[in-house]
């Protein structure tokens, strides 16, 4: 049994991890907030992360920074959260996910907006309110679509790794990504992104 309050250095584990809460709490919360659909769940996952860090404190070799280590723990906790729920698949949706993309998926309509969202990525990312809109659109995705999308299009994780970590077939993964991308595009249109780069092209 490890006595977590016993000081092995200048600080006790509890003091040091509490200090990490101050230093890295916002970053971890932001990281979680992008990946799960509610702030309550994000807070819970961050709490679980810090408690795990305390329990594993002696195993932290300090070859990486505490921040990197904490993010790595959190990332695994988030994946565990999704794994625990049910196997991630389109079977989560009784109709195979059709209803959630009904408005976006119509074969002609989805490409008719020729004047819209010619996105200028750099310009969008410069504007805080537009970043806020991106997050709002992300939150509208069904939770499993969101997880897959975040791993692929925000973290740039490989398709192979995502399918392995989430127990997904490549075919289900591709369908989820396609629908997530369509839903996001649809969301941007509804929120007025077209006006953004009208003069840029």
């Amino acid at each position: 049994m490890v006595d977590l309050n016993k000081s092995t250095d200048l600080e006790s584990p509890v003091e040091e991890v509490s200090q990490w809460v101050e230093e890295h709490g916002d970053l971890l919360y932001r990281f979680a907030r992008y990946r799960v659909s509610s702030h309550e769940l994000a807070e819970d996952l961050v709490q679980i992360t810090f408690i795990s860090a305390l329990k594993d404190w002696q195993r932290f070799r300090r070859e990486s920074s505490p921040k990197t280590w904490l993010v790595s723990i959190l990332r695994h906790k988030i994946i565990d959260h999704y794994r625990r729920k049910k196997p991630a698949s389109l079977e989560d949706f009784p109709d195979g996910g059709e209803a959630v993309t009904q408005s976006a998926i119509a074969s002609e309509e989805m490409v008719q907006d020729t004047e819209s969202i010619r996105l200028n990525p750099e310009e969008i990312l410069e504007h805080q309110e537009l970043r806020h809109t991106l997050r709002e659109c992300l939150d509208l995705l069904p939770e499993r679509f969101k997880q897959v999308f975040v791993m692929r299009d925000i973290e740039n994780e490989s398709t192979e790794n995502i399918c392995r970590e989430l127990n997904l077939s490549v075919s289900n993964f591709s369908v989820m990504m396609y629908r997530a991308r369509l839903l996001l595009k649809d969301c941007f249109l509804k929120k007025g992104f077209p006006s953004l780069s009208k003069n840029k092209y």
Binding site: I117, E122, F149, I154, N156
Partner: peptide, 24 residues
């Protein structure tokens, strides 16, 4: 559009470090 969307989201995490999202 698909390629632009991907570029936007790939840059989102770095850009978001400027945001004021704080843990309560």
């Amino acid at each position: 559009q698909m390629n632009s969307l991907r570029k936007v989201f790939l840059g989102l995490e770095d850009a978001s470090s400027k945001d004021e999202i704080k843990m309560p």
